[in-house]
Amino acid sequence: HMTFVALYDYVASGETDLSFKKGERLQIVNNTEGDWWLAHSLTTGRTGYISSNYVAPSD
Rank of each mutant, 00 (worst) to 15 (best):
S19K: 03
L7Q: 05
S58N: 09
V29H: 15
H1Q: 12
V11L: 08
A39I: 05
E15M: 09
H40P: 00
A56M: 12
V55N: 03
I50R: 00
G14D: 09
L18I: 07
Y54K: 06
D17R: 13
F4L: 06
Y49M: 09
N30I: 10
F4G: 01
S41M: 01
D59K: 09
S19T: 09
T43Q: 08
N31D: 11
F20E: 00
I50T: 00
R46N: 07
K22F: 04
D17G: 12
V55T: 03
T43I: 08
L38Q: 04
G23A: 03
L26H: 03
H40W: 08
G34S: 09
S41P: 00
N31T: 13
G23C: 06
W36M: 13
E15F: 08
E33H: 12
A56V: 14
V29E: 06
A12T: 04
D9S: 06
Y8I: 13
R46P: 00
D35W: 07
T16D: 12
D17M: 15
K22T: 06
T44I: 06
Y8D: 07
T3F: 14
L42P: 06
T3G: 05
S58M: 15
N31I: 13
L18D: 01
E33W: 08
Y8K: 08
S41R: 01
A56N: 06
W37D: 00
W37G: 00
L38N: 01
H40N: 07
S41V: 01
Y8P: 00
I28W: 02
Y49A: 02
L42I: 09
D17I: 09
N53E: 13
V29R: 06
N53L: 14
N31P: 10
S52L: 10
E15I: 10
P57C: 09
V5M: 06
V29Y: 10
Y54I: 06
T44H: 02
Y54L: 13
V29F: 10
S13D: 09
G34P: 12
P57A: 10
D9R: 01
S58P: 08
L42M: 08
S52N: 06
S52T: 07
V11P: 04
M2K: 12
L38E: 04
S13Q: 14
E33R: 12
V11R: 07
H1N: 13
D35M: 10
A12Q: 05
L7I: 08
S51I: 09
Y10G: 02
Y54N: 07
R46F: 07
L26N: 00
I28D: 00
F4Y: 14
F4V: 13
T44Y: 02
L26P: 00
T16I: 08
S51F: 14
T44C: 03
T16S: 13
E24M: 01
Y54P: 03
K21S: 10
D17H: 14
D9M: 08
A6T: 12
Y10V: 07
Y54R: 05
L42C: 12
I28K: 07
E24H: 03
L18H: 01
V5R: 03
I50S: 00
Y8R: 09
T43C: 11
K21E: 08
S58T: 13
T43A: 10
A39T: 03
L42R: 03
Y8L: 09
A56S: 09
L26W: 01
G48H: 03
S19C: 05
L7P: 03
D17P: 02
E33Q: 13
K21F: 08
E15P: 14
D9W: 08
L18E: 01
T32A: 10
M2L: 12
Q27A: 09
E33T: 12
L26R: 00
Y10A: 04
M2T: 11
